[in-house]
Nucleic acid binder design. Structure first.
Lengths: 147, 147
DNA sequence: CATAATCACTTTACCACTCAATTGATGACA
DNA sequence: TGTCATCAATTGAGTGGTAAAGTGATTATG
């Protein structure tokens, strides 16, 4: 079995970094009693509310089933509301949810940025964003038939 | 709530891509009856065998508990062997495991590479690898106290 | 020598995701 | 009007991750 390809090495770096930064982010968000995934969906809701579950699932690239459970937890915690409205459910933040998000927002973005600020210049960050945008969009195109 | 930082945008692209490519990779590996995670640990075992569970956990950056269950499943499928050896367990591939890995290896690496080959030039890929190496190493430094 | 500490691994309970099957409401049409 | 298709959301079974508590053998120490 010969040596790895460049692509597979990039891929490894990406997965390892994402995994690692997720852990650190979870740890960081503990102070706000949130997880990274929860922060992510709260952000999306706050940006696009009101929206349906399927729309949200699309935004955070998670399956219907995943979103359903996630939202059930968030609802139980009182951070979001689901209103059955003419066949679909419309979701929006509660005041408690909005507060919690506003509370964590700045710090979390600062935290996320620190991963790059600490080791890349402006220029390099722009470059990385550009490259990753291309790569990510390309992977979107490969999407499985109906997701 | 103001707009996102550059860092947070990069972060989003990275997580979305990693998630998406993982799904596609799982789908791709279905033909070999493997998951991405399983391929990952089989690769590491094949490279470093024989090794202990803790060493493996280190390599794939997963917790002890996670590795324990993962290996239990792989053992049940007959792909790996665990030999209790003087207090630690030494793991190695079985012939079946080795075969399966060799079978999938080329195709999977080709598949991983395609994500980048399809949208980046040589130069750009080198650049991306360089940047991600820096970023990933930087995140390693931030590791939580005892992992 | 007995008890305590340590070490490698396992187990449990939880979160977050998948796919696939199911439920339940809406709307269409014979 | 009854049935049938459709569509959003839910549920069930499974994977893969975490943290934290538990187990059992080995080594240290009082």
């Amino acid at each position: 079995m010969q040596k790895n390809t460049r692509g597979s090495l990039i891929w490894l770096r990406l997965t390892r970094f994402t995994h690692q930064s997720n852990l650190l982010s979870n740890d960081f968000l503990k102070q706000f009693d949130l997880t990274t995934a929860q922060f992510d969906v709260l952000m999306q809701i706050s940006t696009y509310e009101p929206l349906t579950q399927s729309e949200l699932a699309e935004k955070v690239t998670v399956t219907q089933g995943g979103i359903s459970r996630m939202l059930a937890r968030l609802e139980k915690e009182g951070l979001i509301e689901r209103k059955q409205e003419w066949k679909t459910k419309t979701i929006s933040l509660t005041n408690k949810g909005r507060e919690k998000l506003e509370n964590a927002f700045e710090d979390q973005l600062e935290f996320q940025s620190s991963f790059f600020d600490e080791c890349l210049s402006e220029e390099e960050q722009k470059m990385l964003y550009l490259l990753m945008s291309r790569v990510q969009k390309n992977s979107e195109k490969k999407k499985l038939p109906n997701r």
